[in-house]
Design a protein around this nucleic acid. Structure first.
Lengths: 343, 343
DNA sequence: TGTAAAATCCAAAGCGCTTTGAAAATTTGA
DNA sequence: TCAAATTTTCAAAGCGCTTTGGATTTTACA
């Protein structure tokens, strides 16, 4: 059943039916009701493509997921997507996801813009040096960066957590507990968030006159096995760290496994503090978290990104304010006072 | 730049240009080359919506993700999507993802079908009793079920792993190691795969004259904390299990954490065998797996599902064969002979 | 009651593409 | 060399919707 047929059924013109359905004021309430009723009765659904051709908008938001970088964002991706997707559904937007080899990324963005497939884009996992932002600005398509790129963080819309402050606080927390030798298991340094976190960590150490030791700072994929192997490596050092700060609960889980393998207990022998994106599959609602962490829900971030981008798309000219979220420091059982030297 | 303008530029008709670009034979090679060259030069991209309106097809595949059930599929989702997405990209298909409250799922499927948004759908996480399949059959839209629904597993296209056989083998493996008291941490029983796994487990026990004890069989969300708390619960029993069989590495990780908390070692004190979907964020390529597992890559499953559905869509009338994959039993360090009674 | 204003409704023109049916140009064969 | 066959190109008709500009009907007011 299409518009024409529906209009015929009702003995009305397509114009009137279209207007009735789309809430235009030029149609009487009586007619509108009649039309709506018929529409549901015949299960009429406008053809999306026709609608979009006619309006020029697509009510679709695109996510371009680079294939190589995917492994580094995969666990976060689904929770983010779930949050964003919910918002899209509420506003009647669709979500288009393209999995693209990193080399073809630029081509893909251009194609997205030219083919009118999406009204806006969300940029994931910005690097420290990020070429996509300039490209999208040139293409004049609304976009939102989840995270931030290098320096000038204005001129585009973004939503990020305060990674630097977050790791500064976490490090200070450990220092306050008496730790002086704190290892950092970070994400890949090329990622923007990772370098911010390193800076926060470094500044906290410096402010407390603790030497920064690159031999206990690592950049890896944020997955469990990396946490494990790095910790094994750390535990073989002469001067073992008394605390390990990690960028992801997955890393922290690897750390934990390594500690256990070596007969050490987290919290008493070695403290673990991690950033926690509150991944849905690692948390049970209401459960007391084991890991001490700086916490910020990636699902909520997804929601907020969706909201911001949609509001941007709708108003078009006036770009919403970018947002910087603070994280929450949650003390769990994985951290404790530094063991005294002689123990 | 649109078709009309491009045609004008070239001094050709839209027809010819369109045909040249779409590889129709009615156009000379010389013209085709000229057209293609101009197209790249002016960065011409056909408007997707116009194209789709004209052809009636959408070159888009939809995934409807139910919100409530999402938490149960979230960690698997992204790896599956990554695999499928790659294939879509190769074939020039788009991927549309809708996150929908479970209650609105049916409405949503209907809307998808009526609005012509997608050429086909992938059904995730089929339940033991699955109403969606009948609905989609009635809507006459091509679809593929990742997994299977209840009884008649024909009449539609699916791709599944042999869950029953898989858990039968895993259980037999443990029995061969001397284990007699084997706990099962399964997914929610309402899910099709979970009931198949339970059956495999039960049959293996029965075939070896081991009593089935419902008090050591659990159905939960397949997340780490559930693995942890169930294991704690199991370890407080009078007759503790000597082996734990789990449906997911995430559960297994929880089991491991609980064992460690209680000063037990996996493999010697208690054996763990798990099903392993080879989630990308739990594996490092080339790494020797810690958990003994029945293994099948969910990413590959995503790829294959994409391929099957696309081939179905393309041929339309002839539905491809559904596929049942065997899993691979991989022996790791988490399993070992049952400890002797007196130890 | 007659007229201006407001409320309804409509026909038709796109949106940018594909595709049909036919025409024009070129090649072939006797 | 000319008609027939083949190749190449084109004009125009959709696809199903929105939206403009105008026509028609109803309401309001003097």
């Amino acid at each position: 059943m299409n518009l024409k047929q529906l209009a015929q059924q009702l003995g009305l013109s397509q114009t009137t039916v279209s207007r009735a359905l789309n809430g235009y004021p030029e149609v009487s309430e009586r007619t509108r009701r009649r039309v709506q009723q018929a529409a549901t009765e015949f299960a009429y659904m406008p053809s999306r493509h026709a609608q979009l051709l006619a309006t020029g908008r697509s009510r679709t938001i695109g996510h371009v997921v680079p294939l190589l970088r995917h492994s580094m964002m995969t666990p976060y991706f689904s929770d983010f997507i779930a949050g964003a997707g919910e918002v899209y559904a509420e506003y009647g937007f669709d979500m288009l996801i393209s999995v693209v080899p990193e080399a073809e990324e630029e081509t893909h963005y251009r194609a997205m813009a030219a083919s009118n497939k999406v009204d806006g884009l969300i940029v994931h996992a910005p690097k420290a040096v990020e070429s996509r932002i300039g490209l999208l600005q040139a293409l004049e398509i609304p976009f939102l960066v989840h995270g931030r790129a290098g320096n000038p963080a204005d001129g585009y819309l973004w939503m990020d957590i305060d990674n630097k402050r977050s790791f500064e606080r976490a490090t200070e927390f450990l220092i306050d507990l008496g730790h002086r030798r704190i290892a950092l298991l970070n994400g890949l340094e090329e990622m923007n968030f990772a370098s911010r976190r390193r800076i926060g960590y470094s500044e906290a150490l410096q402010n407390n006159d603790i030497e920064i030791d690159p031999s206990i700072m690592f950049c890896d994929d944020m997955i469990e096995p990396c946490g494990y192997s790095r910790t094994r490596q750390l535990l073989e050092m002469d001067e073992k760290p008394t605390a390990i700060l990690t960028s992801s609960v997955l890393l922290a889980m690897g750390v934990l496994r390594a500690l256990t393998d070596c007969g050490l207990r987290a919290g008493s022998d070695v403290s673990i503090v991690t950033h926690d994106d509150q991944l849905s599959f690692l948390h049970k609602p209401g459960e007391v978290p084991f890991f001490t962490s700086t916490r910020s829900s990636i699902n909520k971030a997804g929601r907020r990104c969706g909201e911001l981008l949609i509001s941007y798309i709708k108003s078009r000219e006036s770009r919403p304010e970018s947002e910087l979220w603070e994280t929450e420091l949650v003390v769990g059982a994985s951290s404790g006072p530094a063991p005294s030297r002689q123990a």
